[in-house]
Every structure is written in C-alpha cells, then in structure tokens.
Amino acid sequence: MSTPLHLDGIRKRYGDTPVLAGIDVDVNASEIVALVGPSGCGKSTLLRLIAGLDVDYEGHISVGEREVRGPDAAVGVVFQEPRLFPWLRLTDNVAFGLPDRGGSHAQELVRETLGVVGLASFARALPKQLSGGMAQRAALARALVTEPQVLLLDEPFSSLDAFTRMRLQDHLLAAWARYRPTLLLVTHDLDEAVYLADRVVLLSDRPSRVADVLRVAPDRPRDRRDPTLLGLRVALLEALHLERSDLVNA
C-alpha cells in the first residue's frame, strides 16, 4: 500500500536564519524522488520535518489526504548512521517499531524483512558483529518492517565504501520493489540520485527553494554506465554550478 507525499510551502528558520524558503514537492505513490543540493542547503532539515522530529515550521506536510505534523506510523526513516540499539539482537532491533513485537506475526514479518535485505542468517547477531553495510541494511529492514507508506532516507549510504554503496543501492531497489513505499532520498551522490530516482529535485543554496526537477527514464533495472544517466549527472552538476574540472575530479 502506498500513498503520495505532499510538501506544501514548507518554511523553516533557525533563529533569524531562514533555511527553507517555501518548498513545494509532490512525490507520487511509490515514486522514488532524490533530493540533492549544495551542502548546508537544508535537505536533511526538510527530511527531519517530514519525519516529525522537528515540528517548528510553516507549511503543510501530508501523506495522502491526511496532514501529518510530528512522528507518524505512516512515515519510516533511515538515518545516515544505522542507529541500531547495541544491546538488541538483530531480530529485536528490526522489530523495535512493531506494535506487537513479541507476537508470532511480528516474528514472521521480521524474518521476512531480514530476508529481503539479505540478513536472514544474522537474525541472532548483535550490532557489534555487523559490518557497516550490514548494519545499514538492518536499519533499512527496521524501517521497512512496519510497512510505512512513505520512507525517508537521509544520505543512508554516505559512510560506506563505493562498492558496498552500489550493493546497498540494489538492496534498496529490491526492497522498494517488494514494499513499494513512496520514497524520498536525500543524497549528495549524484550517481546515486540518477541511478535510484524517478525524479531528482534540486534545492538551491540557503535559504533554499526547489531550483530544478529532473526526470529520469522510468525503466529498471538501470545500467550504471548508461550514457543517458551520465548525461543527467552532467546536467545536475551544471545546475549545481560546479566547474567542469570538478566533474573530471569526481
């Protein structure tokens, strides 16, 4: 089950500093939208507002027809760090947000979700026994197991090495194909944005607005070497006002 996410005129300031100057974004049901922009532009702030971790803003956030303000069961979050509870085994970490954690139905859901992210055989492991990529997959499972209508990801793979990151992007797509949540992803990795997203929303520098929206051809699976994707990446770079030399270095 999936529902669109509407952001309507979101404004946010820290003291006297405006951070978000009216953000309007509509994410369709089961669509994947990547949010990119210069660092410090307020991408993560916007995600925190949608997650309900900060309710001090103007504007409206709605999931389907229903306005949300504050944490909501329909919205799941994966943070930049796995944020697993070190004293809980993997099953209990994943079950953390389930209303009936101990029940057999919950256990079944947990088992299934761990399978989707490829961690079925680590159900009894403690977080300290997991690699960075595995821990982040566990965090993804924890967010998915409650089957949120909207899934928010805040630079979820940024601390991983390039190879692990690509693997996790494919895990994410597989999980998305299974649960079909409406997905909003903050990233600073333009390759990741064009590889994963149906649309890429570009935010301007602070105080930020939506500067541009790029549409990616909807076919999947995608080839990372696809020239169209590379072209989109270049277009994004240009939109970000980066120099050509940065492209070579990146």
Partner: peptide, 23 residues
C-alpha cells in the same frame, strides 16, 4: 540519536525510558 529513533516510532516517555534510555 538513539532517543530519536524512539521518537520516530512515537514511543511515550515511559516507553522511551524503559526501552532505550535505561538499557
């Protein structure tokens, strides 16, 4: 950051204390 996870799942203060802060 761990307390924030509890907030995302809308835990009450008592639940947050029992399930996150005390452990």
């Amino acid at each position: 950051k761990l307390v924030e996870v509890a907030r995302v799942y809308n835990l009450t203060s008592l639940q947050t204390a029992r399930r996150v802060i005390l452990p």
